[in-house]
């Protein structure tokens, strides 16, 4: 474990907590894409298949449980909670996210580190996570006024993977044979997708104006 990865995990945890805070306290999911939340629940479900088979550390197991429980409960809140579901804007959240699942799965069948069920599911979860933010970014461009919590949520979600890139660089130089091209490339693609969001987020923070993404 290195400082970049710990910071990355904490940033990821913070993004989930910000979202849960928003949904649980103000009972609203305005501006949040249910599709992205569903994709993230699928990412964790397919990545943490080894939750009960390979014990790595208490920290690892605990964080996996937190991410699994929080992502599924966020999906439940938006879909079934009698108050929260009313603020879900399904007419705007129209990204065909199922079109992301199949290509990621096919790609995982073709490009993976080992052709086993667990490894293919793990690789699938990496590719899917790289594109999971797309419905949310599209929704942000449609909803004119982005509230602070939503902006912070997306920012933290993008920042965590950027910190992971620093972690991979650190591990590459400090651990022999630590080479995971698949992880690195999908992590880089994921971070690049946030590039323009980061730009507008930084501009709104610098000029102290409301965050707005150009349509």
């Amino acid at each position: 474990m290195n400082i970049f990865r710990l910071a990355g995990d904490m940033t990821h945890l913070a993004s989930v907590l910000v979202l849960l805070l928003k949904i649980h306290t103000i009972k609203s999911c305005a501006g949040i894409s249910l599709k992205t939340q569903e994709l993230y629940a699928l990412v964790f479900a397919t990545r943490y298949l080894d939750l009960f088979t390979d014990y790595i550390s208490l920290y690892n197991t605990l964080m996996k449980l937190i991410f699994l429980v929080s992502s599924f409960s966020i999906v439940w809140y938006i879909r079934h909670h009698k108050i929260v579901r009313r603020s879900y804007d399904k007419d705007q959240d129209t990204f065909r996210h199922y079109f992301l699942v199949l290509p990621c799965f096919l790609l995982a069948l073709v490009i993976n580190e080992k052709f086993t069920v667990k490894e293919i599911m793990w690789t699938f979860s990496l590719y899917l996570e790289a594109v999971a933010i797309l419905p949310q970014l599209v929704l942000l461009q449609r909803t004119r006024n982005i509230d602070n919590l939503t902006g912070q949520y997306v920012f933290l979600l993008g920042a965590y993977r950027s910190l992971y890139i620093l972690n991979w660089i650190y591990r590459y130089f400090t651990e022999p044979h630590y080479v995971h091209w698949i992880t690195w490339i999908s992590g880089l693609v994921q971070t690049l997708l946030y590039a323009d969001f980061f730009y507008y987020y930084f501009q709104s923070w610098k000029n102290n104006v409301k965050l707005e993404l150009p349509a």
């Binding site: 990821h12 080894d50 390979d54 790595i56 490894e119 793990w122 992971y164 992880t183």
Partner: peptide, 10 residues
Amino acid sequence: LETFLYHDEL
């Protein structure tokens, strides 16, 4: 040697 793919990251 079976390179046990050790996914120790989240």
